[in-house]
Amino acid sequence: MDKMKLRRELVEARASLSPEQRRANATSIRETLLDQPWVQMAGLVACYWSIGSEPETHGLVFALWKHGATVILPVHKDDDDLDWAVYDGPDTLTPGRSGIMEPIDTRRGVDTIRTAALVIVPALAVDARTGVRLGRGGGSYDRALSRVGPNVPVVALLHDGELIDGVPAEAHDQRVRYAVTPTGLTRLM
């Protein structure tokens, strides 16, 4: 299956989830992650502010921040690369490019992700055998993930049914080490 067709199918499946199911998924994913010792110990966490039918991260970002982690969120640059800025509570966000909420903090640079102890990324799907992540096709997260060290846990958040076999891969596609769905955490590599 080609990436475009797979993306369409996954986006349609996500659109069919009820608001109640999305809320329940977000709670399960958040609790699963927060139960992991390596998440609890992460001092600097790169995460994202979810939009649309993505697994919701707003409560996760807030919980990480309240538990003492420094959370950095992406700021989309004009060249589609990701800059990073520190989240300092829900009142410190503003609509950015494409309406996605971004921190108002000083931009820290594209290489800031190199210093993260934990990286949480969006994905439409992850290959259960290889850890290849399927994004929306812009390449922003693949570029950012290419800067992450090999021992840093990279986690993709998914709805059930999105951890699949056979995600098409290209040379630039980045892999994730973990996938978290509402039914649990899966170590991939």
Rank of each mutant, 00 (worst) to 15 (best):
G161Y: 12
E20P: 04
S16W: 00
Q21Y: 02
L145V: 04
D81I: 07
G89A: 11
I120Q: 00
M4I: 12
G161H: 07
L185R: 09
K66L: 04
C47F: 00
T183H: 10
F62G: 08
Y178K: 02
R187Y: 12
L82Y: 03
P182H: 05
A123S: 07
N25K: 00
E20Q: 13
T130I: 01
P182N: 03
A63V: 11
I100L: 11
A117K: 09
R114K: 15
Q21C: 02
L6N: 06
E9M: 10
I100Q: 06
S98D: 13
T27N: 00
A46Y: 03
L118E: 03
E12S: 14
T115I: 03
A179G: 10
L60Q: 06
Y48D: 11
V167E: 03
L6C: 07
W38F: 15
G139I: 11
T186K: 12
W84E: 09
T186I: 09
L33F: 11
V176P: 02
V152P: 02
P74M: 11
L163S: 11
A179W: 06
E31Y: 00
R114C: 13
D78L: 14
R187H: 14
S28A: 15
Y178E: 05
G135H: 01
M4S: 15
V119S: 01
A169N: 00
M41G: 15
G139M: 10
V45R: 06
H58A: 13
D165W: 00
V86K: 13
R136M: 07
M41W: 13
L157G: 12
G138N: 08
K5N: 15
D2W: 03
V180S: 08
E20K: 10
R175S: 12
E56P: 00
P150V: 01
G68Y: 00
V126S: 11
V119M: 01
S18R: 05
D79K: 07
W65M: 02
M4N: 14
G161V: 11
V148K: 05
R8P: 01
Q174F: 02
W49G: 04
G96M: 07
I113C: 01
L60D: 09
V155P: 02
G99I: 11
R108S: 09
E20A: 15
E20I: 05
A46D: 08
L73P: 04
T92M: 01
D35E: 14
T106Y: 05
L10H: 08
